[in-house]
């Protein structure tokens, strides 16, 4: 699905196309009544859809249950899981690009991936419910996507002013997230993103899954090395579970693409692996960590 086209993956072109198409001035205003489950600030005049996080914050402040917005996110989440995170989200796209910058890469402790659930609970539901939709303690006030799409252009055009603790907190979080995006793949998606927290549990039951490219895994761990969210697809492939059945997978399908032994009819083998004799013992050279027990 993500074969390369002149050095760029198809996913790159879909992400670029989504960014340009969904952030253009010719989008009809009526679409702002519908939520698109990606981190794109609806305050940006170019944005077509409503941001579910912004809508939930306002509905929490109104003390109204967001049936329509939650229904939309739940429907798309149950159908596609976090596919939108991997293929449509402009902020995810930005992080993918930043991670390509050559630099030292770091690992983060796995427990940090639970922070996003706390951000969702406090910053999106509880604090706006008790303090009102305009509270400075809501996630919108520090959202890095809003800082990039609305505050930064506002500063350039002169209608936003760098004053107040909220402004500096937002700017600091944006810089922190951008810096960590260079050092760790999809840092924001894994650790902070409240939309990711909403969609993550739906990955476990979504209709759309990443099917293992092979039924004869040779534990080469190329999928683990390629995975942008570091969710170790090999472990689930060996258990016969779709690799995407984990909360942090963004269904980028890269693990399918890099698999050297795909057993789908008509799919070509990775040219590097073509010369391998069938039945040859798998090489663990370059693998992350010890080989799995089979």
């Amino acid at each position: 699905m993500t074969e390369t086209v002149t050095g760029f993956s198809k996913r790159f072109f879909v992400q670029l196309g989504s960014l340009l198409a969904l952030h253009s001035n010719w989008g009809p205003e009526v679409l702002k009544g519908f939520c698109n489950p990606v981190l794109s600030c609806h305050s940006c005049p170019l944005s077509w859809f409503a941001c579910p996080i912004g809508v939930f914050i306002h509905f929490s402040g109104y003390h109204v249950f967001p049936f329509f917005a939650l229904g939309t996110v739940l429907l798309l989440g149950t159908l596609f899981g976090r596919l939108f995170c991997g293929w449509v989200c402009p902020f995810g796209f930005l992080q993918d690009l930043l991670y390509k910058i050559p630099s030292k890469k770091i690992e983060i402790p796995h427990w940090t991936t639970n922070i996003k659930y706390l951000v969702l609970l406090l910053g999106v539901f509880l604090l706006p419910y008790y303090l009102g939709e305009m509270t400075p303690f809501s996630f919108c006030r520090i959202c890095p996507a809003a800082a990039l799409q609305v505050t930064a252009p506002g500063l350039i055009q002169g209608w936003a002013h760098p004053e107040g603790a909220v402004f500096w907190a937002k700017a600091a979080l944006l810089l922190f997230v951008l810096m960590f995006a260079v050092l760790h793949s999809r840092f924001f998606c894994k650790v902070i993103c409240p939309i990711g927290a909403l969609l993550a549990p739906l990955n476990m039951l979504s209709l759309w899954v990443v099917k293992p490219a092979t039924s004869h895994c040779v534990i080469c761990r190329k999928c683990c090395q390629t995975c942008p969210t570091d969710v170790k697809p090999t472990e689930r492939i060996l258990k016969g579970i779709p690799p995407s059945r984990t909360p942090d997978c963004v269904l980028c399908h890269e693990c399918q693409t890099v698999c050297p032994v795909p057993d789908k009819p008509g799919k070509k083998k990775n040219p590097i692996e073509k010369r391998k004799r069938p039945g040859k013992a798998p090489s663990h050279e370059g693998a992350k960590g010890p080989p799995l027990a089979t």
Binding site: F67, F68, L70, G71, L205
Partner: peptide
């Protein structure tokens, strides 16, 4: 794998219908 999916899918549809008419 689809039993949980159908439960969540129906819940989403119920939410959407309620939201459409509310």
């Amino acid at each position: 794998d689809r039993s949980y999916f159908w439960t969540a899918f129906l819940a989403a549809l119920v939410f959407l219908v309620i939201g459409l008419f509310r």
